[in-house]
Nucleic acid binder design. Structure first.
Length: 212
DNA sequence: ACATTAAGTGATT
DNA sequence: AATCACTTAATGT
């Protein structure tokens, strides 16, 4: 098997012993796909070393990064997938050489009750992942709005044949279906980047703005 | 001078 | 990103 003693930092001794018994040690080469979308899996991977990238595939087959699974962590998706026998919604790729242990899914119900540390581990990884997902989701949305705002200002400038926009942040926010605070922040960032100048009810588009 | 409205900020979800 | 809470700046009366 493999040295699992460092697992004793997060799990009770009895559980680590059981992992030694039923765990399936695997070494995975860098770049290999560990899980593909649509795959039904009946084992929970517990990462010992290395880094796993979890991503989602869109219709055109492009990858969208979701989150990383570090060593001493596990994938939140597989917890639910295993128990309900759902198909995987994600792809897991080894970023570098990964060592992991596969744990049989049928033991999970038992472990949740038998080992408090396991339950805690499951809960905290789900919580951790969920928060990370929220963060990346926000970033994607943020970038979209950032671009939408720039296009909006460009359109307005073109329509009025002026580089001076006569709109309050509030009005822009309504047109872009967002809140004033968000627009204020994005505009402030553009101003800090020397792309625009901000006044009350007015926005001056500088040369640099059109170079974006 | 005071009230009102626009804009800026930090913290939280 | 959205919302809240609060501050600060600009304008109108």
């Amino acid at each position: 098997m493999h040295d699992l003693s460092n697992l004793e930092q997060i799990f009770e001794k009895a559980l680590v012993d059981q992992i030694r018994q039923v765990g399936n040690y695997r070494k995975i080469e860098a770049g290999a796909h560990i899980i593909e979308p649509g795959q039904v899996l009946d084992q929970i991977p517990l990462v010992l070393s290395g880094l796993i990238k979890v991503s989602r595939m869109d219709d055109e087959g492009r990858e969208i990064f979701l989150y990383y699974v570090n060593s001493q962590e596990s994938c939140a998706m597989t917890f639910t997938c295993c128990m309900e026998h759902h198909e995987s919604e994600i792809r897991a790729t080894a970023e570098d050489e990964v060592e992991l242990i596969l744990l049989p899914g049928y033991l999970m119900d038992e472990w949740m009750i038998k080992y408090p540390s396991w339950k805690k581990f499951v809960m905290s990884t789900i919580h951790l992942r969920f928060n990370e997902l929220l963060k990346t989701l926000d970033q994607i949305a943020f970038q979209k709005l950032d671009e939408r705002l720039i296009h909006f200002l460009l359109d307005k400038s073109k329509a009025t044949h002026s580089t001076l926009i006569n709109l309050s942040h509030e009005q822009i926010a309504q047109d872009l279906a967002t809140s004033r605070v968000v627009i204020s922040r994005l505009l402030k960032k553009l101003e800090n980047d020397q792309k625009i100048l901000l006044y009350r009810n007015q926005i001056k588009l500088l040369q640099a703005f059109f170079a974006i």
